[in-house]
């Protein structure tokens, strides 16, 4: 199958415009989830109704499809008087779903620090905040970076689903171009390449960060 260079020259600028929306969505989702996930994880660590609610939240978002969550937010909220744009609905649904996953990552990181580390800190007279800041969190951060990077890749790929609520990111742009031309192969090759570049950037970035923070040889 020959590649039509002229077609690609017209296609790429359009796709890159879509990619900009994709990157915006992905970066915003990641930034919000890094904080929101921590809030949920800390909430889940408490006893009582808050811990129960955080646990229920995690189970619900992890066990229902992102697409359905997006439909509920996009179509459902507008009906009850809270109309959100496609972009805002997509962002909200992405954050809801991935916040649950990120919370689980933090929880795993906290659990992976041995109880002996807490003991050693307490024996040196450290109080809770000092203990967390200088002993526990640095170890947790080093351990959660690889799974967080995986989640970032997954978020970037998940943004393609907002095409279903008419947000003009790469996927939607691609659909428009495929329907209006016959160059299916070229369009999908280009789209695939752009996604591979975006996700690779995250992988490489995470590997650099991991090396910076590595302490166990």
């Amino acid at each position: 199958m020959p590649i039509d260079v002229h077609f690609l020259a017209r296609l790429f600028p359009a796709l890159l415009e879509g990619a900009e929306v994709t990157v915006e969505l992905a970066v915003l989702t990641m930034a919000i989830c890094v904080v929101w996930g921590l809030v949920v994880a800390l909430g889940q660590a408490t006893r009582g109704p808050l811990g129960w609610a955080a646990g229920a939240y995690i189970q619900i978002v992890r066990n229902t499809p992102l697409l359905i969550q997006m439909y509920i937010v996009y179509f459902g909220l507008s009906l009850v008087g809270v109309p959100l744009s496609g972009f805002a609905s997509g962002l909200l649904a992405l954050c809801l779903q991935n916040g649950g996953y990120v919370a689980e990552i933090y929880r795993g990181g906290l659990q992976s620090v041995s109880a002996r580390q807490y003991e050693a800190g307490r024996a040196l007279g450290m109080r809770r905040w000092t203990l967390y800041r200088s002993v526990i969190l640095p170890q947790v951060i080093a351990r959660v970076i690889p799974p967080l990077a995986n989640q970032g890749i997954s978020i970037t790929k998940d943004t393609s689903q907002v095409a279903a609520i008419a947000v003009m990111e790469i996927m939607k742009v691609a659909q428009v171009w495929v329907e209006s031309s016959a160059n299916t192969y070229d369009v999908f090759l280009a789209v695939g390449l752009i996604y591979l570049v975006l996700t690779s950037v995250i992988s490489v970035g995470a590997r650099v960060a991991e090396r910076q923070l590595a302490f166990v040889s």
């Binding site: 002996r116 580390q117 050693a120 800190g121 002993v135 170890q139 166990v216």
Partner: peptide
């Protein structure tokens, strides 16, 4: 402690 319990990131 028996198991040293040094902080591995320092």
């Amino acid at each position: 402690f028996q198991s040293y319990n040094l902080f591995p990131h320092m």
